[in-house]
Design a protein around this nucleic acid. Structure first.
Lengths: 178, 178
DNA sequence: TGTGTACTCTTCAACATTGAAATTTAGCTT
DNA sequence: AAGCTAAATTTCAATGTTGAAGAGTACACA
């Protein structure tokens, strides 16, 4: 009935008691990953709050910067990348328009489509967030040597490959997102 | 204006163009982590759906199993662990009660408090999910040797330590969650 | 040229989460 | 023992997301 979360090793020990066939090495990786991501998001969330930005807006900003010049994307494409419904995008963009972070105009090539563009204000906001985020990220990796950072990046990239280029062929159980 | 997400390396290259001081090794780790977590959650979400379970319910189930016997927790404690408001917990538990996954009773020691307990149905549900999840997880780590799995687990654990035992003393920017 | 089909975005109602106020209880202080 | 403060949960109104339906546009094919 403890108030605080058990340590990762405690968690895995209990999981194994519940389900003997579980591989503790695999569980350690997977659960550490998910714990880390939660912590990172809490940290980002706090920094965003000090910049009057919600994490919803931040996600969209990131996608727009991520495509590079000229910082344009269709709403549906953003929605798919973020795993949201198009309806949610409509509303997010409404809000971001009001804050001057993005523009919305009809696509001349296909008038059903809409083009979302990043404003200078939006790009500046992205930069402000990244400046703070990079301080946190550096702190997070503090204990790792240069070699270890590269090693970790490589291992994670190899996992990512499995899951980002997953063809759902051959009874594949892996996820496709786009 | 591409339809699909840029690769991790493309993403980082663009980030660096926007913000020169960014350390690509750090960015690679952090962004790979966050991409992986998103993919994993999509995969889990699909498996949960086939078991008529929402990810909200799954999160609560996990916390209850994670504390071990006798599988009891206060609503506020669950809320803090999951980063939710107490109000959200009230509603989640309402739903889970209706599905017979948990019980809710007053704490005899402090009648303001409430004790949420796992039912046998709930524990069985957890097991069903884990049986499927472990297949996916094994597939995810497929390309890593036994040594590499341990190595990855260790590196991630070291990051986690930085962030889970963070005292916000000394101007610390790291997050505290509980 | 006309029709059908597919696609994109928006609108709408239902549901989940949030933040704040309200309620109830415990524990401390005097 | 009374009153004050702090804590846990629930209730309520407001906001965000979802799924489905609707409106508009492009493309293929007859």
């Amino acid at each position: 009935m403890s108030e605080q979360q058990p340590s990762l090793d405690e968690q895995i020990a209990i999981y194994q008691r519940e389900y003997r066939d579980l591989d503790p090495r695999v569980e350690k990786v997977v659960n550490a990953l998910s714990r880390l991501d939660r912590r990172m998001n809490v940290a980002y969330g706090r920094q965003l709050a000090t910049l009057d930005l919600g994490s919803a807006e931040w996600e969209v900003l990131k996608e727009l910067v991520m495509v590079g010049e000229p910082y344009q994307l269709w709403p549906g494409s953003i929605a798919r990348r973020l795993g949201l419904t198009p309806a949610a995008m409509t509303h997010r963009i409404d809000r971001m328009l009001a804050q001057g972070l993005v523009t919305r105009e009809r696509d001349p090539d296909n008038r059903v489509r809409v083009i979302i563009g990043l404003t200078d204000t939006g790009r500046e906001k992205w930069l402000q967030v990244m400046r703070r985020a990079s301080v946190f990220e550096e702190e997070l990796l503090q204990d790792l040597s240069g070699d270890e950072r590269v090693q970790l990046g490589d291992l994670l990239t190899r996992l990512l490959r499995r899951v980002e280029h997953a063809q759902p062929d051959a009874g594949g159980r892996l996820t496709d997102l786009d």
